[in-house]
């Protein structure tokens, strides 16, 4: 097979994509035992993971995941490898210094041109910041739901009492159950309870804000 200058130019361009991208790229090869071993690693993967080339080549791409990485996500990846199918997961992985970080991993089998598959392209993108933002948002949503529940069930309870008591006063029903003095006392204590609840909510919200700005 002869390669023309055009082919060489094209290959050089394609190679520069892998070399210059900020995504970590691995190429792995299945050996005779169908074990997947890394045969190529780009600069970005080394920078991202903290491992040197000779610490990566020859290992399986699965070696780098964190010990507490999601079992479900990893089994999706392993299934895809067994079936020679592409796959995309978000999973926790570990740097050489032990620090864990979130990556989006996509793998794709490379056809050898005769219907077989021997190579894998493995691309990982650092999604740590995105993940952290997402978690902070989820946390805030949970807080908002809690606040809505408190507003609805706790804050409205003494308020409903006040409204009912004022109704009773304004309609001046002669009720044996409550004298006017008792009604006024009950309004005052309900108003104080309402005040306490609102102060607590404000305090909690401030605490939550301080936590999220840390």
């Amino acid at each position: 097979m002869t390669t023309t200058r055009e082919d060489e130019e094209r290959l050089r361009l394609l190679e520069s994509v892998i070399l210059n991208t900020t995504d970590g790229v691995l190429i792995a090869e299945n050996d005779q035992n169908l074990d997947t071993k890394i045969v190529f690693v780009n600069e970005a993967f080394m920078k991202m993971s903290g491992f040197a080339k000779d610490e990566i080549i020859g290992l399986s791409p699965l070696n780098f995941f964190a010990s507490d990485a999601s079992v479900d996500e990893l089994s999706k990846l392993k299934d895809a490898i067994d079936k020679f199918e592409p796959c995309n997961i978000v999973v926790k992985t570990t740097k050489k210094n032990g620090i864990k970080y979130w990556v989006n991993v996509s793998i794709a089998p490379v056809s050898d041109g005769s219907g077989g598959y021997k190579h894998w392209v493995y691309i990982q993108r650092d999604v740590n910041n995105r993940r952290r933002h997402l978690q902070a948002l989820e946390e805030q949503n949970k807080k908002l739901k809690e606040i809505a529940w408190i507003q609805s069930h706790v804050v409205r309870a003494p308020l409903a009492r006040i409204m009912g008591l004022v109704d009773l006063l304004s309609e001046r029903h002669d009720s044996e159950e409550l004298s006017n003095n008792q009604i006024i006392e009950a309004i005052a204590s309900s108003a104080n309870e309402l005040d306490d609840i609102i102060r607590k909510i404000v305090l909690n919200t401030e605490n939550a804000q301080n936590q999220s700005s840390l």
């Binding site: 309870a157 009492r161 009912g164 029903h173 409550l178 009950a186």
Partner: peptide, 15 residues
């Protein structure tokens, strides 16, 4: 569970 409310509602129901 709110005693004042049960009392208020009792008054309303009777009235």
């Amino acid at each position: 569970d709110d005693k004042m409310i049960t009392l208020l509602h009792k008054v309303m129901v009777v009235k």
